[in-house]
């Protein structure tokens, strides 16, 4: 464990709880893409099946359980409890256009052709693009609530911090996972446009709105 990974994990955790708290406190999930949340739930469930097969540490297992539970809770709040506030007519990204190609790619490009490894690879690929429905929704409505942009900033920072972690691990531990690194780069690149808007607007107290 190094500082980049720890801060990355905490940033990830913060993102999920910022979103949960926003929905819970405002009793509304307006402006949040339910499709991205379903994809994240799928990401965690397919990646953390190894909870049952190998034990790393209490920290590792605990975080996995928290990630799965909190994301499933977000999906529950959006699609059941606060369904009336869900902005479905702006959340029109077709997730099959992500899930199907990513599934195919996981079958073709993986470290090992075993069920758990293919699901892990699927999860890594899917995570890299899972935010697209959310970004698509913001581009459709042209704006995002400030709290939603804080969520996105924390979520995007997590993978960027993991990139630093992989550089660190490559030099100091000889660790290198090409699949994770390539997917992590793709994931971070997708946030670049948002990071720019966040830094130039939200950090200066302005609302995130897209130029017309």
């Amino acid at each position: 464990m190094n500082i980049f990974r720890l801060v990355g994990d905490l940033s990830h955790l913060l993102a999920i709880f910022v979103l949960l708290l926003k929905i819970w406190k405002s009793r509304s999930c307006a402006g949040v893409s339910g499709k991205s949340q379903i994809l994240f739930a799928l990401v965690f469930i397919t990646r953390y099946l190894d909870l049952f097969t190998n034990f790393i540490s209490v920290y590792n297992s605990l975080m996995k359980v928290i990630f799965i539970a909190s994301t499933v809770a977000t999906v529950y709040l959006m699609y059941i409890k606060f369904k009336a506030t869900y902005d479905s007519n702006h959340d029109t990204f077709r997730i099959e256009f992500l899930v199907v190609p990513v599934g195919g790619l996981a079958f073709l490009v993986n470290h090992d052709f075993t069920p758990l490894e293919i699901l892990w690879t699927f999860s890594i690929y899917l995570e890299s693009v899972a935010i697209l429905p959310q970004l698509f929704m913001i581009s459709k409505t042209g704006e995002a609530e400030t709290i939603t942009s804080h969520y996105l900033f924390a979520l995007g920072s997590y993978r960027a911090l993991y990139l630093l972690n992989w550089i660190y691990r490559y030099y100091f531990e000889g660790y290198f996972d090409l699949i994770a690194v390539v997917a992590g780069c793709v994931q971070t690149i997708l946030y670049c446009d948002f990071f720019y808007l966040y830094i130039t607007k939200v950090m200066w107290g302005k609302k995130l709105s897209l130029p017309a």
Partner: peptide
């Protein structure tokens, strides 16, 4: 450079 068999990251 090797990919570890056990995945210790989240």
């Amino acid at each position: 450079r090797k990919t570890p068999e056990k995945k210790d990251e989240l």
